[in-house]
Design a protein around this nucleic acid. Structure first.
Lengths: 336, 336
DNA sequence: CATCTCCGTCGAAGCGCTTCGACTCACCCT
DNA sequence: AGGGTGAGTCGAAGCGCTTCGACGGAGATG
C-alpha cells in the first residue's frame, strides 16, 4: 500500500506539499505540482479514505436511506437512487446505502460515527420519526418527500397536491363528472406516507371546487383485486368515466380489466396516470400522465446537500411543479 | 463529539481498556465491562468510523456495484440489493453503493483507498473487464453472476443453464414440440451478460437432446414490439405452442398480445416464465415459472464475503439449483 | 516456598492524512 | 536601503482509534 509519505519521498518534497497538491488548498508551483503528479501516477497512489476522514473530519460519503418496502413502486426508488449515486460521484461523494429497516437507529449510528457527512431520506411520512433526530444533529439532511413540519431539514419533492389537482382538472376539462382514484396499498395511507396523502388531498379539494364526484379506492396488487375494485366502483358509481392511477404497478391491471369489462379507453373511460414517462409510453395504451421526475429529485437532493456541505445557503423546500402530458388514454367524456 | 478517551476518563479506566471492552479481544472483568458500558451510554458515545478504519485497517464496509442499466429488470436488482444490505448489517457491515457507470475505475478507487473491505459485483458479463482488477487485489470479492473464468473471485448465481433446460423440459413433457423464447433486449446479449447467454445455451442444448425446435427472439420493450415479435414468430413457426419468457417485464405484454391474437393460455399455448415468484402469482394468468431467488443470492453473497473476511475458507462457486413451479399458464400441447 | 501461568489492565506507539504556523526567498514600494 | 508582501514549501502536531508489549497480582504447580 502506497502512502502519502512515500509519494513525498519519491517526489523529493514534504508530505504536506503532496497533500496541498492534492487538495489545492495552498498554491504550489507548477513545477512541483507536475513532479508530484508524476510520482503519484508512478507509484499508483490512492489516498486512504479512513485517514482522510479522521484528519479532515469529512468522509465524503452521503448516506441514502431507501425503504425496503414491497408495497412501493420499486423502479422509481431505484431511479432516484441511481440519480443520487451518479450525481454524488460528480461531486466526489460516495453513497452509503441504508435500508429503512433499521429506522431511526440508522440515523443515530451514521451521524454518531461520522460515517457519512450528510443524509438523504426517502419514503418520508407526514410525521416521520427520523425527523427529531435530524434536527438534533448539525449534519445536513435532505428529505425526498415533504413532512408536515419540514423544519430542520431540506426537502425535495414533486408537488403532489398540485399533481392530484392537475389530474382532476384535466378530466374535468374533458367533461368528466365522476372520477375514481385507484390508489396505493392501504398500508401506504395508514402510515401517512406524504406523497400518497397529499395527492389525494389535492385531488379531492380541486374536485370539490370543480364540482366533481370522487371515489378513492386503494389497491393491494394483483389482477383479481383490480377486477374486484373496479366492479365495486362501477356498482357504486355507474357513471364513473374518469380514472386517476397513482400507483404505477396498477396501470396494466387497470387497463386489462377495463378491456375485459368492455370499456374502451379513451372512448368510454379516460385514464390519467401518475408515473414515470417510460411507464406511460410503454403501457398497452399510451397514457396521459403526470411524470414522476425521479431523476430530477435525486439530482436536486444531492445538489442541495453538497451546497450545504460547502457552506452555501440553500433553499429549504424545493417543490417541483407537476407537468401533465396528454397521450392516448384520455378523451372527452362520452355524451350520455 | 464524544471520544474513547472521554469514556475512559468517565469510567476511570484507560483508553485501551475501553477499546478492549468494545472489541472483546482481550478479557475484561465483568465489573469493568459494566462500568464502561454505563459510561458509554451515559455519554452517548459512538466510535468514530474513520479513526477505526485507520487504526484497524478495516472499514466494515462492503461495496456493492449495481448496474444502472434500464434494460435490466429493476425489481430483481433491488431485491438483491436490499437482501445484501440487510444481511450485511447483521454482520456489522454497511453497504457502499456503486453504480456500474464508473466501471472498472470504481473497483480501482475503492480497493485503492481502503474505502471498503470487500466488493460484490452484479451484472457480470462472461468476460468481465472488472475481473482482472479483482484478481490483482487481495481484497475479497463476490460476483453475483458467473463469468466464463471465475478464477480469483467467488461467484453466486442461479444455475441459469439448468434453468433454461428445466423450462424446455417442462414444455417437452407436456408434448410441445416447437418453442419460442422471448428474451432480453438485444443489448443484453451483445454485451455477453452471463445469465442471458447461459439460459439460452442451456435451453437450446436440452431442446436439441429432446428434439424440440427453438426460436429465440429478443425483445426491446413495449406492447407494439411484442405484437410484432409474436406475429413474426407465428409466421415463421405457425406450430409454436410453447413460450419461455426470461424477461420479467415481457410477461404482461406477452399475455396481452396472445389474448388479442385469440390464443388461449394454457389451452392453445403454454407460457413458462423465469421471474420472481411475486411476479408469477400476480400476473394476469398465474404463471408456471422458475423462480429467480434474488434474496437468496444477495444473502449468500454477503455470507460468503464475511466468511472470507473472517479468514474462513469458503466455496468458490455457489450455483443455486432452479426450481420450477407449475401454475396456470402451462398445460398439455393441443392435439392437432 | 519458589516459580510459573494466566488474567486484567495500562502506556505508548503508531495508522495515513490534514492543517497551522513558520520560514525562506524574491520582488515591489517608498 | 529597509521594510512589506505574497508565493511556495516544510515541520510538527494532532485526528480517535487499535494493538502490542509490559506489568502487577492472584492462583496453581511442583
Amino acid at each position: 500500500m502506497v502512502t502519502l509519505a512515500e509519494v513525498a519521498q519519491h517526489a523529493g518534497v514534504s508530505a504536506s506539499t503532496v497533500s496541498y497538491v492534492l487538495s489545492g488548498k495552498r498554491s504550489i508551483s507548477a513545477e512541483t505540482r507536475e513532479r508530484v503528479g508524476r510520482s503519484i501516477r508512478a507509484l499508483g497512489y490512492h489516498p486512504n479514505a479512513g485517514a482522510r476522514a479522521l484528519a479532515s473530519n469529512r468522509s465524503n460519503i452521503i448516506a441514502l436511506m431507501i425503504p425496503l418496502r414491497t408495497d412501493m413502486y420499486v423502479p422509481v426508488m431505484m431511479e432516484i437512487a441511481t440519480a443520487v449515486a451518479t450525481t454524488a460521484r460528480t461531486h466526489g461523494y460516495d453513497i452509503l446505502l441504508l435500508t429503512g429497516e433499521e429506522g431511526p437507529d440508522a440515523v443515530r449510528r451514521v451521524t454518531g460515527s461520522g460515517l457519512a457527512d450528510a443524509m438523504i431520506l426517502m419514503d418520508v411520512e407526514l410525521d416521520d420519526d427520523r425527523l427529531p433526530l435530524l434536527r438534533a444533529t448539525e449534519q445536513p439532511a435532505v428529505l425526498i418527500g415533504l413532512p408536515t413540519d419540514p423544519a430542520g431539514a431540506t426537502c425535495v419533492d414533486l408537488d403532489w397536491s398540485a399533481t392530484g389537482a392537475l389530474c382532476v382538472e384535466h378530466l374535468a376539462e374533458l367533461g368528466h363528472r365522476e372520477v375514481a382514484v385507484i390508489g396505493e396499498a392501504p398500508a401506504v395511507y395508514e402510515r401517512h406516507t406524504g406523497f400518497a396523502v397529499r395527492t389525494l388531498d389535492g385531488l379531492r379539494s380541486r374536485a370539490r371546487e370543480l364540482g366533481l364526484k370522487v371515489l378513492h379506492r386503494p389497491w393491494e396488487g394483483g389482477y383479481d383485486a383490480m377486477a374486484a375494485t373496479l366492479s365495486r366502483i362501477f356498482d357504486e358509481r355507474p357513471r364513473t368515466t374518469g380514472f386517476v392511477v397513482q400507483n404505477e404497478s396498477a396501470v396494466e391491471p387497470l387497463l386489462a380489466v377495463l378491456r375485459r369489462l368492455g370499456r374502451a379507453v379513451p372512448e368510454d373511460v379516460s385514464v390519467v396516470a401518475v408515473c414515470p414517462d417510460q411507464v406511460a409510453v410503454q403501457a398497452s395504451v399510451r397514457l396521459t400522465s403526470v411524470a414522476v421526475p425521479a431523476q430530477e429529485m435525486g439530482r436536486h437532493a444531492v445538489d442541495l446537500l453538497v451546497g450545504r456541505l460547502d457552506g452555501r445557503e440553500t433553499d429549504d423546500v424545493v417543490l417541483i411543479a407537476p407537468e401533465l402530458t396528454v397521450r392516448a388514454s384520455s378523451g372527452p367524456a362520452p355524451s350520455r
